[in-house]
Design a protein around this nucleic acid. Structure first.
Lengths: 159, 159
DNA sequence: CTTTTATACGACTCATTTGATCGGAGATCA
DNA sequence: TGATCTCCGATCAAATGAGTCGTATAAAAG
């Protein structure tokens, strides 16, 4: 079914959310934390945390520790592609096992394999597809989101 | 990693093999059985059998019972697409859980989901890609499709 | 400087999917 | 008719992914 994992789903949602708060309205740019995202999208907190940590380690986002901490984008949304996120969270893209095989460790079927070449072409096309859509594209016409519960209590403390 | 399952791998190999023996050299067209394919490509016999059964039930291939039995293509190789095989063996294509959701049973994230629309576009493109490559293409020297990017339309709209 | 609050990090458990296997039923050819 | 070969359905085991728990570390507030 070619389904992408929850990690990727959550990661993309989080990135979109962070980007929207950071670039959506420059006047109100702010740091968002894990808890806020988890509650907004009903994602298990600890799992989301793990995803964000992975993204932070890769440099896609920057983490800020302590109270008032959270995450900010490490790159311009225009430079972050879906393919990047996918590879960071799920490993290198490959529609078959032998996608990234070296010449030596081939699979059993390799010698008579009749589908490798055409499938590699498809894989290449899919990659190209994912690599052409950026976080910026995903933000598109998205209006700035209002966060009722969390925002109100933070707004009070903010200034 | 968007990897497709062994079932699909095996299924595609088998279909290619059947097609090659049936249409490759018309003078020597012949029925091939499960065992032959399994040995040729080093695939577990019983697993391959199950895959072929599924394909047969869907009408993609015709099964012939008894001694000298085996499988023949039920359609012209030109009419069999990778997308078909994939959907038969792995279920409907969908890169996210909410791909085929009805309006009612939405996921928790749905109400505030910010990535559904762009991902649906990508999914559509992938489907188109898989649906444009036929078994015929995989057999012969027929060159492949080129793919148009989903993001193009959105890339134009730079803020 | 101490306390409080938030993120960072690693190890672990549980569930789902996938891969693989077994025994039986039906059909064909000698 | 009978023996063989095939398809067929149900079942079992392994691998992957989803989600959880507990502790450590860092920064802000008092």
């Amino acid at each position: 079914m070619l389904k992408l994992s929850k990690k990727t789903d959550y990661g993309l949602m989080a990135l979109q959310h962070i980007a929207a708060n950071q670039y959506g309205d420059v006047a109100r740019a702010r740091v968002v934390n894990t808890k806020e995202i988890a509650e907004e999208y009903h994602i298990p907190l600890e799992l989301l945390a793990k995803v964000l940590q992975t993204l932070a380690k890769s440099g896609l986002i920057d983490s800020h520790n302590g109270p008032k901490g959270g995450y900010l984008l490490g790159k311009n949304p225009r430079e972050i592609t879906i393919a990047q996120v996918l590879e960071i969270l799920e490993g290198p893209l490959g529609i078959m096992d032998c996608s990234h095989e070296k010449e030596g460790d081939a699979c059993m079927q390799r010698e008579h394999c009749n589908i490798r070449t055409p499938l590699l072409k498809i894989q290449s096309s899919i990659y190209q597809l994912l690599n052409n859509m950026t976080l910026q594209d995903m933000m598109g016409g998205t209006p700035l989101i209002t966060i009722q519960s969390v925002a109100t209590e933070q707004q009070g403390v903010e200034r």
